[in-house]
Computed example of a mutant assay.
Amino acid sequence: MLLKLNHKKHLDNQQKINQLNLKHKKKLQRSSIDIQEKERQRIGSDLHDSVINELNLLFLQSQAGQSEEQFIDSIQKTIQLTRRISHDLNPPLLDYATLDNLIKDLFQQWNIFYTIQLHIDKRPSFELTVEQKMHLLRIIQELMSNIYKHAEASQIQFQLRLSEKAIAFVMRDNGKGFQSPSNQIGLGLQNIQIRATLVKASFKYKKQIPTGTAFLFILPQKTTA
């Protein structure tokens, strides 16, 4: 009788665990759909706020008789914006490139807009899944998009450390700071929260003194004994 009770208890516990796992899987699937929708919104916003505005500016400059040098500079800026959005949509060689090279390529798209200081500390015996690389890239892209739209910054510092224990980075800008009411979370921050949850990472914003914002991110890696 006791053995039967223990066996039944074990089966009940296993059933509860399976139900929790299924519930968690469905939650992640919903989160994945949310991410896709937010990505579409962000890309649409980028096209409207960046490329279309630059094209309108080009049209006005052509009507106002701007100098050839100013006109060429505006064209180059518009081309760079379009390249950056295209890069965000489809990071090159994601399956094969290392995270540090993908990040270097990402920041290269922003060199025309900011002075960027990039420091990468990569330790040996380090591997990342394609999913991890994608989510980390999307988080950094979201941060850059927020800086471009809201921070009014001119300088960015990015420090990345890759080791067998953790993936960690700090991203700082010299803009006007991160100002968001505690009860109001924008789409960009929601996107970051969902992606961090999916890869089981943690992050926080830290307001810098006198100006700017620092973003801290850490993803612990599984270690073998």
Score class of each variant (00 low, 15 high):
residue 23 K to A: 13
residue 82 T to M: 15
residue 220 P to V: 03
residue 167 I to G: 00
residue 180 S to W: 06
residue 30 R to K: 12
residue 179 Q to R: 10
residue 218 I to A: 02
residue 64 A to T: 13
residue 4 K to I: 11
residue 122 K to E: 12
residue 125 S to G: 08
residue 125 S to N: 15
residue 104 K to C: 05
residue 80 Q to S: 15
residue 11 L to C: 08
residue 206 K to C: 09
residue 197 T to F: 00
residue 125 S to V: 06
residue 129 T to I: 10
residue 144 M to G: 06
residue 218 I to F: 04
residue 211 T to Y: 14
residue 33 I to K: 12
residue 37 E to S: 13
residue 6 N to A: 11
residue 71 F to G: 10
residue 43 I to W: 10
residue 14 Q to A: 14
residue 164 E to K: 13
residue 223 T to G: 11
residue 158 F to V: 04
residue 62 S to H: 00
residue 196 A to F: 00
residue 99 L to K: 02
residue 183 N to T: 03
residue 42 R to P: 06
residue 70 Q to R: 12
residue 48 H to R: 15
residue 19 Q to L: 11
residue 214 A to W: 10
residue 127 E to D: 10
residue 210 P to H: 07
residue 53 N to S: 15
residue 76 Q to E: 07
residue 177 G to Q: 02
residue 71 F to Y: 15
residue 160 L to K: 04
residue 171 M to F: 06
residue 222 K to A: 14
residue 118 L to V: 09
residue 81 L to P: 01
residue 190 Q to R: 03
residue 90 N to K: 14
residue 29 Q to T: 06
residue 62 S to E: 00
residue 187 L to P: 00
residue 190 Q to S: 03
residue 159 Q to Y: 07
residue 165 K to I: 04
residue 221 Q to P: 06
residue 72 I to M: 12
residue 106 L to G: 13
residue 36 Q to P: 06
residue 137 L to E: 01
residue 213 T to I: 04
residue 191 N to D: 05
residue 34 D to L: 07
residue 120 I to L: 12
residue 118 L to Q: 07
residue 140 I to Q: 12
residue 26 K to C: 09
residue 137 L to I: 06
residue 75 I to K: 11
residue 207 K to M: 10
residue 42 R to H: 11
residue 204 K to N: 13
residue 165 K to M: 08
residue 47 L to H: 09
residue 157 Q to R: 13
residue 220 P to R: 05
residue 202 S to M: 10
residue 218 I to T: 08
residue 4 K to C: 10
residue 182 S to A: 06
residue 165 K to P: 03
residue 140 I to K: 12
residue 75 I to D: 11
residue 210 P to D: 09
residue 63 Q to V: 07
residue 195 R to G: 01
residue 184 Q to L: 01
residue 34 D to K: 07
residue 4 K to P: 08
residue 79 I to D: 02
residue 136 L to H: 01
residue 144 M to C: 14
residue 148 Y to C: 08
residue 178 F to L: 13
residue 197 T to Q: 01
residue 138 R to T: 03
residue 59 F to D: 04
residue 60 L to M: 07
residue 208 Q to S: 05
residue 114 Y to R: 04
residue 62 S to D: 01
residue 51 V to G: 05
residue 74 S to N: 11
residue 153 A to E: 02
residue 19 Q to K: 15
residue 21 N to L: 14
residue 179 Q to G: 03
residue 103 I to M: 05
residue 165 K to Y: 04
residue 180 S to H: 09
residue 106 L to E: 14
residue 171 M to E: 02
residue 86 S to N: 14
residue 59 F to S: 04
residue 18 N to M: 12
residue 37 E to C: 13
residue 177 G to P: 02
residue 191 N to S: 09
residue 178 F to Y: 15
residue 72 I to S: 07
residue 224 T to E: 15
residue 150 H to Y: 10
residue 198 L to S: 03
residue 63 Q to M: 10
residue 96 Y to I: 11
